[in-house]
Simulated assay, not measured.
Amino acid sequence: MDKEFISTLIMDFFVAFGVVIGGAIVGGIGAFLIGKPPLSTINDLATGLKIWAMVAAIGGTFDAIYSIERGIYDGSHIDIAKTLFMIFAALSGAHSGGVVIQWLTQEA
Rank of each mutant, 00 (worst) to 15 (best):
I68Y: 01
L84T: 09
S92Q: 06
G71N: 08
D74Q: 13
G93I: 06
D63N: 13
L84F: 15
I68E: 02
Y73C: 12
H77R: 10
S96G: 07
I72Q: 04
G93A: 09
S92K: 06
S76Q: 13
I78E: 09
I80K: 08
A94S: 15
A89Y: 02
T83H: 01
G60V: 02
A64D: 00
L84A: 12
D63R: 06
D63H: 07
S67T: 10
S92A: 14
A64L: 11
D79R: 09
I65F: 05
R70E: 07
I68R: 02
D74S: 13
G60L: 03
E69S: 06
I87V: 15
I78K: 08
E69R: 05
L91Q: 03
L91C: 10
F85G: 00
G71C: 12
I87Q: 00
A57F: 09
E69L: 14
S67Q: 14
Y66T: 05
L84S: 10
A90C: 10
L91E: 04
I80R: 04
F85Y: 07
S67P: 02
D63V: 09
I80N: 11
T83N: 11
A56M: 13
G71V: 11
G93E: 08
D74G: 14
H95Y: 14
F88E: 03
S76P: 01
Y66D: 04
T83C: 15
I65Q: 01
E69Q: 07
M86C: 06
M86S: 15
E69M: 14
T61G: 10
H95D: 09
I65L: 12
F62E: 07
D79K: 11
L91P: 01
S92P: 09
D79L: 15
M86Q: 14
I78L: 07
F88L: 15
G75M: 06
I68S: 03
T61K: 03
M86G: 10
F85E: 00
Y73A: 12
F62C: 06
A90T: 11
G93M: 08
F62Y: 08
D74H: 11
L91D: 01
G59T: 02
H95T: 12
I58D: 00
T61F: 12
F85I: 02
I65T: 09
S96W: 07
R70Q: 10
D79H: 12
I78G: 02
G71I: 13
T83D: 07
A94E: 10
I65S: 03
R70W: 01
D74N: 13
I80H: 06
A89W: 00
Y66P: 00
F88K: 01
D63M: 10
H77W: 13
A81K: 13
G71K: 08
A64Y: 00
Y73H: 11
Y73P: 03
S92E: 04
G75V: 03
T83W: 04
F85K: 05
D79Y: 15
I87R: 01
G59E: 03
G93L: 05
Y73L: 15
G93C: 06
